[in-house]
């Protein structure tokens, strides 16, 4: 079966979506990612959507779900590279995806993930002391 590859980079997982996904493919990605977070004990997920020319409510909901589920699994998700036309259209559609963290590109997304993790870690240390 067709699948979107998930790359492991140290503590993080990286997914680059390059195809126009049909609904089942999007659902499979959601399942695969949650499984991978647990299997590889990842702390963060980067989803690069810079090649996506369209996001409808289905794909939008998938991105929100991945964010929520990763949170439950103690990982952070950052969605990176959304194109302006896609962003304007999503807002017009009525999806502002409030719980989803975003960054302009993979590099900035990586920085954001590190910051999140650092502040998480320091909170843990604070609690311990």
């Amino acid at each position: 079966m067709e699948r979107i590859p998930i790359l492991r980079m140290g503590d993080f997982l990286l997914v680059t979506i390059q195809v126009d996904m049909h609904d089942r493919l999007a659902m499979t990605l959601q399942d695969d990612l949650t499984r991978q977070i647990v299997a590889s004990n990842s702390r963060g997920v980067l989803i690069d959507i810079s090649s996506l020319e369209m996001i409808d409510s289905f794909i939008g909901r998938m991105l929100s779900n991945i964010s929520l589920m990763s949170n439950v699994l103690a990982a952070q998700t950052v969605v990176v590279g959304m194109q302006p036309a896609v962003a304007i259209t999503l807002v017009e559609l009525g999806m502002s995806m409030p719980g989803v963290r975003t960054a302009l590109n993979v590099e900035k997304g990586m920085m954001l993930l590190r910051e999140c993790l650092d502040s998480d870690d320091s909170e843990v240390e604070d609690d311990a002391s």
Partner: peptide, 12 residues
């Protein structure tokens, strides 16, 4: 308002 929201979706 929409612009601010769209910018946020893009990561700015």
């Amino acid at each position: 308002l929409k612009t601010v929201t769209a910018a946020r979706l893009m990561g700015a």
